[in-house]
């Protein structure tokens, strides 16, 4: 037996391992990976042949949209399925804190997304062989998409915590991400003061700012803050269930 912090880390590891096991032991992981690569491959070759340049910026723009569809699909069962199948009762009656559960689920989801993103590293490798690719910009863009994925994952985990139905979790997660996307698109129609505020609150604005190859602390902090807010909301939702 171990105690304290080390037990919490062991539990986070166990939760991550269990989620990976479910993903790899069922068709779910393979279907998502194949569909993700198919869709991204399509957009990548379209941008490549359209512009004829060794540049990935257009693909990174569309990747933010593609993630809006895929991350809710990967997150929907994380907590909704636990609630529906009754394993949530099993989980929370083990010596594990709610924050450990939330962190374990989040890290499992985030790492699954990172693995999908790692599969796309083939694209910059191909491009660097074909032309003169700005490696610095690509690395900054990958950091941006990793951070964006973290905030999307926390939003969708919260959606999964709010319901026991996976489809409801998917739709509500997708709608929350869509609203955030529409917010960034609607920024120009607001007054200049409002534009400044909305820019600060829009994940896509920060993402697009990082795609230029510029890593600003404010952008990085925004994604960390956004993930923290939604993970806290997830924690609150799970705690609230006990007191209903």
């Amino acid at each position: 037996m171990v105690d304290g912090m080390s037990l919490a880390w062991l539990q986070i590891r166990a939760l991550c391992f269990k989620e990976w096991r479910v993903l790899l032991d069922t068709p779910l992981g393979y279907v998502i990976a194949i569909a993700f690569l198919f869709v991204n491959g399509f957009f990548f070759e379209m941008n490549l042949f359209l512009f004829g340049q060794a540049d990935m910026r257009a693909w990174f723009y569309t990747l933010a949209l593609v993630l809006m569809f895929f991350i809710p699909a990967m997150a929907m069962r994380m907590l909704a399925d636990e609630t529906r199948s009754g394993t949530f009762e099993l989980l929370v009656t083990m010596p594990v804190s709610t924050s450990t559960i939330v962190l374990g689920k989040f890290l499992a989801l985030w790492m699954q997304i990172l693995c999908l993103l790692a599969l796309t590293l083939l694209y910059p490798l191909t491009l660097s062989c074909l032309g003169n690719l700005d490696i610095g910009q690509v690395l900054a863009s990958y950091l941006a998409v990793v951070l964006l994925a973290s905030s999307y994952a926390s939003v969708c985990l919260y959606a999964s915590a709010m319901t026991r139905y996976e489809v409801v979790a998917y739709i509500s997660g997708f709608i929350m991400l869509l609203l955030l996307f529409l917010l960034s698109k609607a920024i120009p129609s607001f007054s200049p003061v409002m534009q400044n505020w909305l820019f600060l609150l829009s994940p896509l604005s920060h993402y697009q700012s990082m795609l230029r190859g510029l890593i600003r602390l404010s952008d990085v902090m925004f994604f960390i803050a956004m993930s923290s807010v939604f993970l806290s909301l997830t924690w609150f939702e799970l705690e609230r269930r006990r007191w209903r």
Binding site: A14, L15, K18, R21, D25, T26, S85, M94, P95, V96
Partner: peptide, 18 residues
């Protein structure tokens, strides 16, 4: 956890108990 086999399920429970 219906998606896991019995061994993986029991391993998970044991690991959660440290």
């Amino acid at each position: 956890y219906h998606d896991l086999n019995v061994f993986a399920h029991l391993s998970f429970i044991g690991r959660m108990h440290g």
